[in-house]
Amino acid sequence: MAESTGILEMDNAGNAVRRKRTFARATWRHLRAKPLGALGLLVVLLVAAVAIFADIIAPFDYQAQKYDAVRVAPGATHLFGTDEFGRDVFSRVVHGARISLLVGFASVLLGTGAGALLGLISGYFMGYIDSGLQRIIDMWMALPDLILALAIVAALGEQSTQILIIAIAATILPRGVRVIRASTISLRESDYVLSARAIGASDRRVILRHIAPNSMAPFLIIMSSMFGTAILTEAGLSFLGLGIEPPTPSWGGMLTGQAAQFLRTAPWMLIFPGVALSLTVLGFAFAGDALRDILDPRQRGR
């Protein structure tokens, strides 16, 4: 996408339009050549639709407890059965999509966005700023994702969706820095950056007008590949009881405690949220791989 807009500025209008169309056609060709990518995209879109229309799709209130219908097996009224409080598992899985995608999207945006900004600065200015920042990133990365997120949740001392998002974003940030820094370093010696600097463009202008748009491909790639990780971290934290607070349904949270106790007698409580979670992450993985193939031809076929 970034490449075609770049060309659009230089060429005349007719040429630009044609280029755009080739991009769309190339994308289509890739989707057909990569059925897994297309499948992934389909899953992602489906989950997104479920998240958006959760209120319409869910047949029951996700909080409504029915004590005369506790742990009912999946059937016509309760598609995925009910849990230990008689809540409809299907409705809870549907609403879980909303919280999963919300936390995933917000934390990926925050983490990669902040990471990209630091990466641009670090890669462009090099020198002390760069080496200092890179050492800090080294330290940051010595902590496993979940541990870092746990530390932040522990430090902030309370549970809320915002804190959860910040904690997950913090785990994503260093990867954003690394990727964008690498791309910035390779771009800063390119001819067009040198010529922009030669005609006296300010650092700010060079970064924002020349380097940032051309780093768009790696940025989108890292964003898409971080989605699954973010969703898994959220699920892990919620599973440990340190993420989304009940009664808000989160896929990870639905698998805690009781679900494990009723492993034998009510396995549906365990199976459906887990399937939803895994399919979503898998969908993002396939779609992300396909996106990487489309945006970064050098990596193709690996």
Binding site: G228, L255, G274, L282
Partner: peptide, 8 residues
């Protein structure tokens, strides 16, 4: 295996 949360 990479997409499955390992607690699940």
């Amino acid at each position: 295996f990479e997409s499955m949360p390992n607690f699940w």
